[in-house]
Design a protein around this nucleic acid. Sequence first.
RNA 1: GGGCCGGUGGCUCAGCCCGGUAGAGCGACAGGCUCUUAACUUGUUGGCCGCGGGUUCGAAUCCCGCCCGGCCCGCCA
Length: 555
Amino acid sequence: MTSEAPEEEFSIHWIRDVTEEVLKRNAAVFLISTGKSPSGSIHIGIMREIIIADVIKRELVRTGNDARTMFVVDDYDPVRSFPASVSLNLEDWVGIPYSDVVDEFGCCGSFGAHYANELIETFDAFGVNPEIIWTSKLYETPEMQDAVRICLKHTEVIRDIMIEYVANDFNEEQKERYIESMKNWYPASVVCPKCGHLQAGAKGAITPNRITSYNPESDMVSFECQACGHSDEVTLDRLRIKLVWRVDWPAKWHVLNVTCEPAGKDHSVKGGSYDTGLEVSRRVFDWPGPVKVPYEWVRIGGRDMSTSEGIVFTPRVWLSIAPPELYRYLLLKTDLTRAINIQPERIPDMIDEYERFERVYYGVEDANETRRELAQLVYPLCLSGDLSPEYIPKLPFKFATVISQLADILGHEATLEKCEQALKKQYGLEEVPQEAKALIEPRLERALYWVRGYGSERDRIEITEEVSQDVLSTLTDPDREFLAKVVELLHHKDLDEDSLQSAIFEAARGVGIKDRRAFVVIYRILISRKSGPRLAPFISTLGRGWVADRIASIL
RNA sequence: GGGCCGGUGGCUCAGCCCGGUAGAGCGACAGGCUCUUAACUUGUUGGCCGCGGGUUCGAAUCCCGCCCGGCCCGCCA
């Protein structure tokens, strides 16, 4: 620490604290790692970890360091269960590494590759680009085999660590039983060369193909397959071996030379797998291990996500309804110790908030000193693409939800034209810059997806083929008289929007119905609702001819 | 059993580490954009800061205890 005035040095953001911690490692290349086993569709929770890593990397690079990120696909993990969406028969595959399980869709090399790729394909959109490491491949490297050897040679030490960490809060009886069970325990299992199983039994009753002995002199390993009964004794390099979970992690840290790895709360619990891994790093691999960055989970609609229970909100789904920057923003503004709860129905509000924040960064919206300072630090980290030197005006998302629903009626060109007009009006522009235009279509697409999937009834505009009977039955004679006048007005080509609006008021007065009533009648005929978007522009949006025909059809 | 996070206006949350005026967004209500409006815009409303105790001149904020909600501790970010 160079500063001697700590009382002035309050961190303005967690990212500062974390990078400071990481920098203490003085690595030549800072490697920030993340990982996930591809047990099915991978939900957006993992993106919290991946983006945390990305943000740390960006900060390190910004401050002149060499830093990289990595995403480790744990496809060497054995199948424990399948989510309901998978049609494969669990009994056929349980206990076999994901990398050896068939891809039921036939597009990827394996089950593991399939679900990992599904996630990896969204990386670019979210602005992350970690190097991808496949554990199944990593275990084939001589470096990893050496790590396995080191672990087997340190079996005694590892047993001690396991007893110390795992049995820590057992009672005496449990502890004794555990110690007893550890007597002939080795920290590695074997993929049976005959049947391909790494372990036998399903969830709750798993028996791994543990190594039963290891001779450091001859490098001979013996094992017995719990699934098919095959047993053998061969040299280590002739077998596919996998270290047990709590040892597998530190071995990878060692082989890949990981400086820092974020971890969800389940792993980061005091005395949990992360801490065990760090202890293994120290006592077996003789180094401190990575900087631990614990973080809370991401929830969806107030529930935990769970691949196995099918509560899955994937990064791809996110991208279909919201910009990736918003997710990064959400993540950055939330303290690591706090859960992020995605509430899809609130996405339009969140987008508004994010875009206000964006305008603060560009100085086109007022804000106090703290907020501006925060924007300077955080906004660039939110971006998944390049930082634009100038503010690019964004079409208000809520406007997009309305207009995107009218696009079918309006036609593509007219819809875009409408959006450009809205942008011009909102930001007082002469011309809409090319960069802003480019954002319109994706925004419309997302808005439409959002409104269809998550919008409330209020948000949805439905224009029925025909005017419903319910609506027709409420029309009075003066209403019809009024409507006839409106049709006439609509055929007047020389009326601009304002004049049309005025003329409609006049028409209502002319036949003696109340203004309110006049509008209710028109909205009912158009969208079966008693209110809607400001009428004259809305009529222009729908097309005067179309509206005139629609009204005329019921008179 | 061990541990973590949260409990602040109707809703979602900020503020708590650094004790001294309780904030934002949404909602609701009222107004503006012609007396209709879901965009945009102005304003108003609304909180004994979970409960009890302690420290202090002063506590949402620090300490202790409790209650409620969620979660982790075999695999799972």
